Simulated scan of single mutants.
Amino acid sequence: MKLTRRQFFELGGCLLGAAIIPRESYANTKKYATFIDITRCDGCQGEEIPLCVKACREENKERFPNPKKPILPYWPRKNYEDWSDKKELITTLTPYNWIFVQKVEVEGKTLYLPRRCMHCDSPPCVKGCPFGALTRQPEGNSVIDHNLCFGGAKCRDVCPWHIPQRQAGVGLYLKLLPKYAGGGVMYKCDLCDSRIKKGEIPACVIACKNQVFYFGERKEVYQMAYERAKKEGLYIYGDKQNGGTSTLYLSPVPFERIDQYLVQTKARFRMPVNIPNRYHQEINPIGKGMVATAVLSSLAGIAGALINRSQDDSKQKEVDRDEE
């Protein structure tokens, strides 16, 4: 594939615009949070699928990726991430499964932890995305714009929990540079963004039969979690991790012990306790300039790679003609 001059500048305008246009909104609206009481979660024993998982999949099924095959490697890499043959997998996070229930054995207790995006107060995924595909909404949740995402996975790299998951063979890059740019699109929980904007409750919260989830205005949720923790001797997770989040967990055992178990069992998703936030300040004009510079550098790199690839192809054709 050859990139024309027009295509190059169209691509540049698209990416640069996404990088420098402020996409976060801080309107005066309700901020929400969730606390997840794992003292009440039994993993939906007896159910074929945990009800929160089932509800999430049903709510978001129309937004799941439908990759175009054959999927080309993420050039210059020779591999790609394809979960399309594992759509029914519910024991981990995938582009088709945005919440799962993690089982741990700690201090003689069996605990079940519903795991999904934490929706950080100062989300590294939003700050670190070079294409502006992620935004933090006024309600406190972070959202991926699948129409802008190039699947570079920077969001997953900077997330302390590595939540976003990538599916190749979908996304904007297929229309622009299908052979050279982008790894696909990243997917994760957005806290049922369309629902909460209408004043409705996330699907996972409604579906839970044991009232494991409590969803409401942030101040109320934090207050209830702190009161429960103090009254019942429970431990809290998510209020300080990564600078604070909109997702709190209540546990009968320390989260250090939970994470030790996850480390020992080589779990794919952990719960580290001491997590500093590397992007604690809001993006300022200097930061936006750095993002724009990064985008332009990436674009220049793509262009250079295309030129080199084109030159290599031309040389190879000359060699082929000489051999003939």
Rank of each mutant, 00 (worst) to 15 (best):
A18G: 14
C52D: 14
K30G: 02
Y74F: 05
Q45F: 08
L15F: 14
G17C: 04
T39F: 07
D42A: 13
K31D: 00
R63T: 15
E81A: 11
I71W: 03
E59T: 11
P95K: 00
A19M: 06
A33W: 00
G46D: 10
E48W: 02
K86Q: 11
K87W: 02
N79A: 13
L72I: 13
K86Y: 06
P65D: 03
D42Y: 09
L93I: 02
T92I: 01
P67N: 12
A33L: 00
E88C: 04
T29S: 05
E88L: 08
E48Q: 10
T39G: 13
G17I: 01
Y74W: 06
K54G: 08
K78C: 11
P67F: 03
N97G: 14
Y26W: 05
C41S: 13
E81Y: 07
R57G: 04
E48R: 05
W75A: 15
P67H: 07
C44H: 07
K54V: 03
E24F: 03
D85L: 11
N79S: 14
N97A: 12
A18C: 03
Y74D: 11
N28H: 06
P76F: 04
K78L: 08
T91H: 05
T34K: 06
K86M: 11
K69I: 07
K86L: 13
A19Q: 13
F64E: 15
K30P: 00
T92H: 01
Y32F: 01
T91Q: 11
G46A: 11
E81F: 10
N28Y: 03
C41H: 07
Y74R: 06
Y74I: 13
C56G: 07
W83I: 13
K86A: 14
Y32W: 00
N97W: 06
E58I: 10
P65W: 00
K54F: 04
D85G: 12
W83V: 02
K54N: 10
P65N: 02
A19D: 07
T91V: 04
P50W: 03
K68A: 09
F35K: 00
L16M: 10
Y32H: 00
N66R: 05
C14I: 11
K86V: 03
E62V: 14
K54D: 13
I36V: 14
D82N: 12
R23D: 14
D42P: 02
Y32V: 00
K69M: 08
S25F: 05
E81H: 05
G43N: 07
E81G: 01
C56F: 02
D37S: 07
E24G: 11
Y26D: 15
R77E: 12
P73N: 09
C44A: 14
E62G: 08
R23K: 08
N66A: 15
Y74Q: 10
N79M: 05
N66V: 13
I49F: 06
P73V: 08
Y96Q: 11
R23F: 04
I99K: 12
K68G: 12
I21S: 09
Y26F: 06
L51S: 15
C14Y: 09
W98P: 09
N60L: 10
D82E: 10
E81L: 09
